[in-house]
Design a protein around this nucleic acid. Structure first.
Length: 320
DNA sequence: CCTCAAACCTGCCAGC
DNA sequence: TGCTGGCAGGTTTGAG
């Protein structure tokens, strides 16, 4: 269940490993993994002969700007040679390793189009040698020069890939982008904005945090974690939040996400980065998936309820 | 406009 | 042991 920190980790890995290589071809093993706007065979035809200029993240979406592949392009140098490396190493080398999101809006029209990916719940993008055995849930394979492969593996098949033609507004194809709220690390996501969006709203704050139009990138895990860190109960109706609570929650959202990115994504899901290495959120969640276990702050058993159809975890003492 | 719940899908696990 | 039913969750869609 990749959320913003996991998608950001993947994005950085992809920028290190996959750029400026010709896409030689591919294989779509599950047609429904390709968004309806294009057939599987057209999808592959359009990508063939292109290369990836750069990967971007917006919320939980990954977007690759494509370019027409040419040998000259590659000569200007690329980062890795696809060698097996440790997550920490390439993070240190990646120029944009600051906590600024690798996102930008609006997406300028591109001469050569875009590749969009959403991992939904169980999607993984893996950078492997083409000779590697193909696991059961492999949905899409893209073959790149150097005997390398970008592989989309997705057990529950909710994940999607899009091809956006040249000179086309990205959000007209990847329509989910239209309703995304601000990136949590952007200036646009100010405390004032946050307070304004919660003002007089009747729904529980947990439900609001999962709403991608409020802030982009939070999912069930980090919503629960941010609520714990700020000491706010998930069931609190937005309209009832005090200014102080809103301020604490605003800060907690940013802090929790930054911390998770700094450790390469969470480990309390079956998340793998592009090289198949498990993330490491510090290995510790405050409340997520800890029903009945002692609160790490006060030892009270963590409670679990269902809210907006999602499992929701909180400490009845630390959160009020 | 606002809010919520169902649907999409497959593997896992508790309970019988 | 083997089966069944419930659960997991991001986003879209439709109902109220």
């Amino acid at each position: 269940m990749p959320e913003l920190p996991e998608v950001e980790t993947i994005c950085r890995g992809l920028n290190h490993l996959t750029l400026d290589r010709a896409i030689l071809g591919g294989d779509v093993l599950l047609a429904s993994s390709i968004a309806r706007s294009i057939s599987a065979s057209d999808f592959l035809t359009k990508l063939k002969g292109k290369s990836i200029e750069r990967w971007y993240r917006r919320g939980k979406y990954l977007l690759a700007e494509l370019s027409q592949f040419s040998e000259g392009e590659r000569e200007k140098g690329r980062g890795g040679e696809g060698e097996k490396g440790r997550v920490g190493e390439f993070r240190a080398q990646t120029p944009n390793s600051s906590l600024l999101p690798s996102s930008f809006l609006p997406f300028p029209s591109s001469q050569t189009g875009w590749l969009g990916v959403h991992l939904r719940m169980t999607g993984q993008l893996l950078w492997v040698n083409s000779d590697e055995p193909v696991p059961k849930h492999t949905r899409v394979r893209l073959f790149l020069e150097g005997n390398q492969e970008l592989r989309f593996v997705d057990q529950r098949t909710f994940g999607q890939m899009w091809y956006v033609p040249p000179e086309t507004e990205v959000s007209s194809v990847v329509t989910g982008l239209k309703v995304l709220g601000p990136e949590p690390f952007s200036a646009e996501f100010s405390r004032e904005y946050f307070a304004h969006k919660l003002h007089r709203r009747a729904r529980p704050i947990k439900t609001a945090l999962l709403d991608q139009s409020l802030v982009a990138g939070l999912g069930n895990i980090y919503a629960d974690e941010a609520l714990f860190v700020s000491g706010v109960l998930p069931t609190t109706v937005c309209a009832d939040l005090t200014a102080e609570q809103i301020g604490r929650l605003h800060a907690a959202i940013i802090q929790v996400l930054q911390k998770a990115i700094a450790s390469g994504g969470t480990t309390f899901s079956n998340f793998l980065n592009v090289q198949g290495v498990n993330g490491n959120y510090g290995g510790v969640a405050w409340v997520y998936n800890r029903k009945g276990q002692p609160c790490r702050a006060c030892c009270t058993p963590i409670e679990r309820i269902k809210l907006a159809g999602r499992s929701t975890h909180s400490c009845p003492v630390c959160q009020t």
